[in-house]
């Protein structure tokens, strides 16, 4: 089941779709506080854009992280989340107590800001893991 990559229709379709998918993913990430969605869904959507490109262009996508970069993404995403928890600890709060950060905001605002940082971490981790699994699943060219 090996087919050639790079038909003009697929290429054009991907070119039209991918910017919108990326912007939608970012919207879901930034708007997760007020509407359905959040870091997890945003991460999956962002990964979808890159995997679509890999499906259309094969091993030469021209954009996006390699498997190693995806691994770094996933690990740094989880590190951002855990780091926010330890940061709260450093400022004298409990682990993951977002209100402990000394930001010039009301408590709920501080929590919302820290929540956004954590959501970004989750999004990064999810996108990275999706890319890792995809990279692992495709058979190497023999």
């Amino acid at each position: 089941m090996r087919l050639r990559f790079g038909s003009a229709i697929l290429d054009t379709g991907a070119r039209v779709l991918i910017p919108f998918i990326l912007i939608f993913g970012l919207y879901v990430l930034f708007h997760g506080h007020d509407s359905p969605g959040g870091g997890f869904q945003a991460g999956v959507i962002l990964a979808t854009a890159w995997i679509l490109l890999r499906l259309v262009r094969g091993n030469d996508p021209g954009w996006g992280p390699e498997a190693r970069g995806a691994l770094v993404m996933a690990i740094s995403g989880v590190a951002i989340y855990a780091g926010t928890g330890f940061g709260a600890l450093a400022f004298g709060g409990a682990f993951l107590d977002y209100a402990a950060f000394p930001l010039p905001l009301p408590p709920a605002g501080t929590r919302a800001a820290a929540t956004f940082v954590v959501e970004s971490g989750v999004g990064l981790a999810v996108a990275g893991v999706m890319l890792i699994i995809y990279e692992a699943l495709i058979a190497p060219e023999s």
Partner: peptide, 25 residues
């Protein structure tokens, strides 16, 4: 008012239940 998130699901998942979500990550 406690989490600053108008989407209650985000407030619960990331704030009230932040430990669980970290474990999931």
């Amino acid at each position: 008012e406690e989490t600053g998130a108008r989407n209650l699901v985000t407030g619960v998942v990331v704030d009230y239940r932040g430990y669980d979500t970290l474990g999931e990550a």
